[in-house]
Each structure stands twice: as structure tokens, then as C-alpha cells.
Design a protein around this nucleic acid. Structure first.
Length: 492
RNA sequence: GGCGGCGUGGCCAAGUGGACUAAGGCGACGGUUUGCAAAACCGUUAUUCAUGGGUUCGAAUCCCAUCGCCGCCUCCA
């Protein structure tokens, strides 16, 4: 089976073929950096991280572009309202660009924690004002836009395909207008390409139409065009951006270039928290730093970033995902199960008897790999792909109990964990340095001292003392496990 | 009000006309193992897929109605 994506544009699953053989250009709408990234960002960017990782796994050369929106958009569409970056900047008493810098760094930090590969280019909207002005000029020259009172608007009536992505009908939209129409616009559906700035507006640039700033949809058109060309293979983003944002991107880009803008539109669904929409006023707004640290009244503990990632992968990217403390807890347990098995496999690979992979093991691993790829090829069904990883865990644990398992088998199992669980899903790490690593030498020495004392107590049948030592260590987050080959410790 | 989507075991979630008497994870319970645990392994845990009708030889999957939730129609991943 070939790789298929559900294309929002055609509303069906389609086999994926890139425009140019072997290479893929993908553009994903990035964050507006006026606050820390939250669970919704995590779902979106982990989802597209999987797209990039899987395409690379399949051997494509992928160019991954994800913008950073550091020019705030208006807080409403009635030509009123304030730039939301500016609003946040005032509140924190910082220059908007300083604020953008703070939250851009915070964003990358959180995405690194979640194991998302960095985009090849993270273009800033503020760094592409010239290109944006050029696009507006082109649209004016071609008659798709008009200037009014220092602002420039896109004339939707000139672009026949408007509405093709979101399934909206321009006449119906005109009939059902709820927002007050700006006096400068010819029609309520027209959208701003360039906005005139009031003198006190902090972020403004000079243009042929006077001082102003770019409209909200322009940057994505401009930056995808600049780095990926006029027609790009994949454009990703949140489903809430289908309209108006992506619809407007199509209009601007296709009007300017006269060619198809995006071949495959991929949209991820939203998150809820405890079954409710996540909102600042609902007190269920959880950002990633809170999820990782557990400092939030909805959370009973902090969660491993990769456990958060695993929870996201446990459902389909086009399905809504409900975050709750219980769901995170379950994901954490499952993540730890995978982790401990991978570590055990790698340790055993070093001490196991020499030997090649057995035919039976090789066959089993091949079947798991095929099942995994079939799931991923079906519009990235990570939930099923993850279940294959759990099948591999069970298979591996069976091998671990068999003292006859050879190093060759363990290495083959590790290879599959590393490629499917690591390279593709990103929930298996290359190295686990938390336990027994150089940074842990002191702790390791101390814990081993306690283990020695406890085992002396055990051999003297002084189980009360033995259990007391174990409980004491458990209280500070260290778990002891008595294995046939001796007692080992790990962090909780 | 208009448009789109969803509702599967105690919880999360895949499956979207016949191989479903419904994956996988978490939790719970029983067993193996253990001094007892932990971890691991084995087994049990939905005759049923929001509710009520209908189509079909056959429906979780299609249609209609009802209830609930989510998204878009104003920036938002």
C-alpha cells in the first residue's frame, strides 16, 4: 500500500506523490509568539512532525518550513482592535519584538522537549515585509486588489475559486454578515492585504500606500512561495485555520501566480481539556511548561514530555483529542513501559550470547514492520502504529525472559525500536542517560550502598529492615527491583 | 441562525457495510514469579458501538430524528 493523505481540499484520501520525484516541500502554519505554547500547539506540531519524520523514513528529501508570526494580527476583523502582540507587550512592559523573541525561544524549547524535529527554516514574518509588499503590488497590478484610504484589500469577487477549501459560498456569506463592514471595503468578504497604521501603532513599515503593516494571511503565502516555490506539496495547519486563513492564502497565492498553490492540504483537529474547550477563562488552559512540571490545578503530577507526545500519537491527527490528568497518567505509564523494555533490550544485547538473528524472530519483526507501515500509509494512523510498538514490547519482553536469546536478536529488536519507535514516532530515544549515566555516578554509588545493606538484611531474614530501606528509597523516587541476577534501581 | 465534525468497555482510543462474538494503551481482578513487593509474562474485564426508528441477506459502519459535545462563520494550533 502506498502512502495516502486525507486532502482537505478534495475531502478524500489520496495517494501522495510529490511534484518533483523524491523531494517534498512542506509548509506548516507556525505559532504567533505572544505566549507560551500550550497543549493545542503540541497536538498540531507533533502531528506535522510525524508527517515530516515519516516522509523522511520513506526516503524523501523533505524541506520543512514553519513560520514564526512575530507581527501580531488584529484582535478583530472590523478594522478595529489592537495587535495582539502589542497588547501582550504592553502588559509585560516590553517591546513587541523583545516579547516575540522571548516566546520564540520558549516555543523552540518546548518543541525540542516534545521531540519535534526543527524545521529547516523558521522564517519570521517581520523579516519578510519587503516580500509581502511585493505580493500586494502584484495583486494590485493584476487587478485582484484595490487600495482604499492607505489600506489594500483583496477583491474576493475577482477570484472565482474563493471558498473551494472551506466549502463556503460567497453569496451566502454576503447574505449572513454579522461583523460590521469597514467603510473602506467594497464587500464584507474582502480581506486586508495591507493595513494603514495609526501614528501610535508600534509596529509599522513604510510602503507605497504609506505607513502600515501586513494583513494577517499574507505572510504564509509569501514565505511558502519564497522557500518552496509557487506550488507546494503539503500545507499543514490547525482545522480552525481552514477559514478564513487558508482560504485567503489560496486566493492571494493563486491570483498572484496563476498556478495551484497547495497540492495536499492537511488539517489537524483540536484539543479539549476534560471534555471542554480549552480557554483562559475556563481555568483549564494548560501550557506545555505546566504539563511538564505539573504546576497546574488540573494536574496531579508533571508528565514526561515524550509521554505527552505519546498521548497525542495515541489518537488520530484528524480526531479531536481530550486531555485530562487521567489520560496523561495513562500515557505516562505506557511510555514508561516502552522505555524500560527498550533499555532492557539494549543492556541485554551487550551481555547476550553471540549469534545471528533467528529466522522466527526475523519473520516476526518483519511482520510488525509491515503492519506499522500499513498503518502509517493510511493517512498516518499513529494510534495503530503505536499499538505495533506495544506488540514489539511484548515480543521483546518474552525474549528477555529467555536466556537463550542471542545478541543478534536483541540488536534486531533494538533496530526496529529505534527506527519505528524512534525515527518515525519519536517516543524511543537514542540514548537514555537518566539512570547509571555519568551525571548519576554519585547517586548510583549511594543507592548501591543501600542495596548492599538491604540485601544483607534480606539474607539475615530481617525483612522489616529490608522493606524499610526500600520504602525509604521509594519515598525519594527510587524504585528497587529484585531480579534473578541481582537488585537494580531506577527512578520512578 | 448557517456550515462542518464527533459521541465505541471504568478511562484514553483504533476500526466506518460481511475476516468485528470490536485493535492497542491505562486501570481493575485472578494466576506464574517473589521473603513480601516491583517489573515481566499468562488469563479475565464491551454479545456491544449516545438514544429511537429505518435501509440491507448482513450496520459500530448507510439514512432519518432526538440528545450531548467540538470547530468555523472575528485573531486563535
Amino acid at each position: 500500500m502506498k502512502l495516502e493523505f486525507y486532502n482537505s481540499l478534495t475531502r478524500k484520501k489520496e495517494e501522495f506523490t510529490p511534484l518533483k520525484k523524491g523531494v517534498v516541500g512542506i509548509y506548516v502554519c507556525g505559532p504567533t509568539v505572544y505566549g507560551h505554547a500550550h497543549l493545542g500547539h503540541a497536538k498540531s506540531y507533533v502531528s506535522f512532525d510525524i508527517v515530516v519524520r515519516y516522509l523522511r523514513y520513506l526516503g524523501y528529501g523533505v524541506t520543512y518550513i514553519q513560520n514564526i508570526t512575530d507581527v501580531g494580527h488584529l484582535t478583530d476583523d472590523a478594522d478595529e482592535g489592537e495587535d495582539k502582540l502589542v497588547v501582550a507587550a504592553k502588559k509585560e512592559k516590553k517591546h513587541p519584538m523583545a516579547l516575540a523573541e522571548i516566546y520564540t525561544r520558549s516555543y523552540f524549547e518546548d518543541m525540542d522537549m516534545l521531540g519535534c524535529v526543527r524545521p529547516d527554516i523558521s522564517p519570521r514574518a517581520s523579516g519578510h515585509i519587503i516580500e509581502q509588499i511585493e505580493l500586494v503590488k502584484t495583486l494590485l497590478e493584476k487587478g485582484y486588489a484595490y487600495e482604499a484610504n492607505g489600506s489594500v484589500y483583496f477583491d474576493v469577487s475577482k477570484f472565482k475559486d474563493y471558498g473551494k477549501l472551506s466549502g463556503r459560498n460567497v453569496e451566502e456569506m454576503l447574505a449572513g454578515v454579522r461583523v460590521a463592514v469597514s467603510p473602506d471595503k467594497k464587500a464584507s468578504v474582502d480581506f486586508a492585504l495591507w493595513k494603514k497604521a495609526e501614528p501610535n501603532h508600534i509596529m509599522q513599515w513604510s510602503s507605497p500606500w504609506g505607513m502600515g503593516y501586513p494583513g494577517w494571511h499574507l505572510e504564509c503565502s509569501v514565505m511558502s512561495m519564497k522557500y518552496l516555490g509557487e506550488t507546494i506539496d503539503i500545507h499543514g495547519g490547525g482545522i480552525e485555520n481552514k477559514f478564513p486563513h487558508h482560504e485567503c492564502e489560496i486566493a492571494q497565492s493563486e491570483a498572484a501566480n496563476g498556478v495551484q498553490f497547495v497540492r495536499y492540504w492537511l488539517h489537524n483537529n483540536m484539543v479539549t481539556v476534560d471534555g471542554q474547550k480549552m480557554g483562559k477563562s475556563l481555568n483549564n488552559f494548560i501550557n506545555l511548561k505546566q504539563a511538564f512540571s505539573g504546576v497546574h490545578e488540573k494536574l496531579t503530577r508533571g508528565y514526561d514530555p515524550l509521554a505527552v507526545r505519546q498521548l497525542i500519537l495515541n489518537s488520530h491527527y484528524r480526531s479531536p483529542l481530550d486531555f485530562s490528568d487521567a489520560a496523561l497518567f495513562a500515557a505516562q505509564s505506557g511510555y514508561e513501559k516502552i522505555t524500560s523494555t527498550v533499555i532492557a533490550v539494549r543492556e541485554n544485547a551487550k551481555s547476550a550470547p553471540e549469534g545471528e538473528v533467528s529466522k522466527e524472530a526475523a519473520k516476526e519483526l518483519e511482520q510488525l514492520k509491515e503492519k506499522f507501515e500499513a498503518a502509517m500509509n493510511d493517512d498516518l494512523n499513529t494510534a495503530v502504529a503505536l499499538s505495533v510498538i506495544f506488540e514489539l514490547v511484548r515480543f521483546a519482553n518474552g525474549l528477555l525472559e529467555d536466556s537463550g536469546t542471542t545478541a543478534g536478536v536483541f540488536n534486531a529488536v533494538d533496530d526496529l525500536f529505534s527506527s519505528l519507535g524512534g525515527d518515525v514516532l519519536g517516543v524511543v530515544k537514542d540514548e537514555y542517560i537518566e539512570v547509571g549515566g555519568a551525571s548519576d555516578e554519585l547517586i548510583d554509588g549511594l543507592v548501591k550502598g543501600f542495596i548492599k545493606q538491604r540485601n544483607e538484611a534480606r539474607s539475615n531474614k530481617d525483612f522489616a529492615r529490608a522493606d524499610a530501606i526500600r520504602d525509604e528509597l521509594d519515598g525519594i523516587g527510587i524504585v528497587l527491583e529484585d531480579k534473578p541476577e541481582g537488585t537494580v534501581w531506577r527512578r520512578k
